[in-house]
């Protein structure tokens, strides 16, 4: 634990500032760990915490980064995903941040990671005991768009006054014929608190139930931390005659042929060409490495280059 912001030699040599392990100072980490422990003790309850300014804008995962910084140790292996992918800006930057500030090992393989920070997805590969998944949360309050007053929503949680949540689902069915909420789908945790699972697609809701891994949620701007301990009941809200359902996809992943996974739509050209691929890039790569192939797999066109050539050719033809 280093307390001096600069070590003299580095300051003189003009090297970067010598920060504490994982960027945050130890007092801040203790404060955040206390909030996390309280969150674990009361599953689904939003614990206020003194969120810090982070060297990134709000909305880019300041809450998740603070939680990760507080729980990560030198022996941990970190995976960071953004919309399921390991190679998008947010994921790459946060992974680089911790590689630099905590000098931890990083990985893209779900199975190898001890801490997974995520924005909007839970990996397809089942998480196992001992893993921690940290969610970046923009708006922690599931009742927010129905009741704007924080004083009131806190009371509603306190006395389990949750009729309003069903009003939203009722309204979905009345207007659209089915529950049209597709992400941030409200869940009831351990039969008590209603919780917003952050903007994960509802496809991932069933993975939260009785998960072997510890699930932590950090909302930096809103200054809230909440948690679901391992092996906790998480039930998605619904009506008896309109039960909860996850999204289904008509075709398998175009690259790995995977089914029963969450797919992203990729626009190929401006002529309506599109493909559906695994949102979880690690899962997709893993399957391809094991020899699975989809309809548009590069192997069919011999190499990646010929795929892109083929795709642009198709665009030009059409």
């Amino acid at each position: 634990m280093t307390s001096a912001p600069f070590s003299s030699s580095e300051a003189q040599s003009g090297a970067i500032a010598d920060y504490n392990f994982a960027y945050l100072d130890e007092q801040t980490k203790r404060m955040i760990r206390r909030a996390i422990l309280k969150g674990i003790a009361i599953p689904g309850y939003q614990v206020p915490f003194a969120s810090r300014e982070m060297p990134m804008p709000y909305g880019w995962g300041t809450g998740g980064v603070q939680v990760t910084a507080s729980i990560i140790g030198p022996d941990d292996t970190l995976k960071v995903i953004d919309q399921g992918a390991d190679d998008t800006t947010n994921a790459v930057s946060i992974r680089a941040f911790f590689a630099k500030m905590a000098k931890v090992k990083t990985t893209t393989h779900t199975g190898e990671a001890s801490v997974i920070q995520t924005r909007h997805r839970i990996p397809e590969e089942q998480l196992h005991e001992g893993q921690v998944i940290v969610f970046q949360v923009p708006i922690p309050e599931p009742l927010r768009f129905l009741e704007p007053r924080e004083t009131e929503t806190r009371k509603m949680h306190a006395v389990e006054d949750y009729g309003l949540m069903h009003v939203k689902l009722y309204e979905d069915i009345a207007q659209k014929g089915h529950i049209a909420t597709n992400y941030a789908y409200p869940v009831k945790v351990k039969g008590r608190y209603i919780m917003d699972p952050s903007p994960t697609p509802k496809f991932d809701n069933p993975k939260m139930n009785q998960s072997e891994a510890l699930q932590l949620y950090g909302a930096g701007r809103e200054m809230r931390i909440y948690a679901i301990p391992p092996y906790t009941d998480v039930v998605s809200l619904d009506f008896e005659d309109y039960p909860f359902e996850v999204q289904t996809f008509e075709e398998p992943c175009a690259l790995c042929g995977g089914t029963g996974v969450f797919l992203d739509e990729v626009i190929l050209d401006d002529q309506g060409g599109r493909m559906f691929v695994c949102s979880d890039s690690d899962y997709c790569e893993d399957r391809r490495a094991k020899g699975h192939r989809g309809a548009l797999s590069p192997d069919i066109y011999e190499s990646e280059e010929s795929l892109s050539a083929q795709i642009s050719q198709e665009g030009a033809d059409a």
Binding site: V167, Y170, I173, F239
Partner: peptide
Amino acid sequence: LRMTVSAGANVGERLMAIGEQHYGDIR
């Protein structure tokens, strides 16, 4: 009233608040 949700949901809110969970019945 809740001005931004439908008349049906306005009437149904109290029912849902006391645990009614059958959409058809509420409607």
